[in-house]
């Protein structure tokens, strides 16, 4: 079985900051906007190097989304930065009308997604954002898994003509994907080959899926782990090809089971190949204060939870 190791842990938001800085040097049309969270979004380097292409909006996210839409008229490629909660729920109507329906080339970059925001608690821990964004016609939804992939995704979305929701997080997580990777929107990445069960994971749960697959391997269970960094458009073929081999699937995400990756996968399976599926996701609940590790444990979003789900789904084959 192919195994993955890491030398360093870093936050995915720093991958966004590094990708944005590189875009600042390579793409003169890229502009950045922030609603009073420069440090949290790691946007400093872009701002230092391109002060004229940065717009500090203040604590006014609705205005930020509208200004971003306006900046596209004139050929700019705006990247907005704030927490995932304030990037989606707070400004849903602005995104819907001024960006998505208007077909504007805005990149909505959202940090501190999910429970791993930690101690600030449920007001800041959005677990509904993937659902909100994937329902908007034309919106691309991406949730990369580590620093390198977030950096590559940030750079890649500048080349995509249309609105994108890029979701990343606060905690340091293992860097296990290559620094020189080419990021292809909508193209799933098979991390391990397996025959007994398919595990498709997104964001922070991808590393947890790899950890689970190691333990499962030791228990004699062969798991195929797929990194679904793009939830929309979903790589239907990669999922269907894998379950054709394994006959069952576990989906894993730092998101509500309603509206997330798991439901998108379930739709594809229901239409093309009905397959037993278990969901590693939050169960229609808000979060709470705690350390990221405590929260992921309490809400069942770690490798142990994935192992348990695998054992359950195997019995349903």
């Amino acid at each position: 079985m192919k195994t993955y190791t890491y030398k360093e842990k870093k936050d995915t938001r720093s991958g966004f900051g590094a990708g944005l800085a590189e875009l600042g040097r390579t793409n003169p049309n890229v502009v950045a906007l922030c609603a009073d969270l420069i440090g949290s979004l790691k946007m400093n380097q872009f701002i230092d190097e391109n002060p004229e292409r940065f717009f500090q909006i203040g604590i006014a996210e609705a205005n930020m989304m509208g200004i971003a839409a306006g900046l596209t008229i004139g050929g700019k490629i705006p990247f907005t930065g704030t927490f995932a909660n304030f990037s989606t729920g707070r400004v849903y109507d602005q995104i819907r009308q001024s960006i998505a329906y208007s077909g504007k080339n805005v990149k909505i970059c959202a940090s501190h997604a999910g429970l791993t925001l930690g101690e600030d608690g449920a007001t800041h821990q959005i677990l509904e954002d993937i659902g909100l964004m994937k329902m908007l016609p034309g919106m691309v939804v991406i949730n990369p898994c580590d620093y390198n992939q977030t950096k590559a995704a940030t750079i890649a979305i500048a080349e995509h003509d249309g609105p994108v929701y890029l979701r990343f997080g606060r905690p340091s997580v293992p860097i296990f994907t290559p620094a020189d990777q080419k990021f292809e929107i909508g193209k799933a990445i098979q991390l391990t080959e397996g025959t007994d069960v398919t595990i498709v994971a997104t964001g922070h749960l991808v590393w947890e899926a790899l950890e689970a697959s190691k333990a499962l391997h030791e228990a004699g269970i062969s798991a195929e782990v797929i990194n679904i960094h793009t939830i929309k458009p979903l790589d239907d073929k990669a999922i269907l090809d894998s379950v054709a081999k394994t006959g069952c699937i576990v989906t894993a995400e730092e998101h509500n089971h309603l509206g997330g990756l798991g439901e998108s996968v379930a739709r594809v399976l229901a239409q093309h190949r009905p397959t037993p599926q278990e969901f590693v996701a939050t169960n229609d609940t808000f979060g709470e204060s705690g350390t990221p590790a405590q929260l992921m444990d309490k809400y069942g979003l770690n490798s142990a939870a994935i192992e348990k789900a695998v054992k359950k789904v195997l019995k349903r084959k």
């Binding site: 292409r53 609705a62 205005n63 509208g66 200004i67 839409a69 900046l71 050929g75 109507d93 009308q97």
Partner: peptide, 15 residues
């Protein structure tokens, strides 16, 4: 929503 959009377009003109 229109004033925000107009502001963005105006700032793009300046850039």
């Amino acid at each position: 929503q229109g004033m925000s959009v107009a502001i963005g377009a105006a700032q793009a003109k300046k850039l």
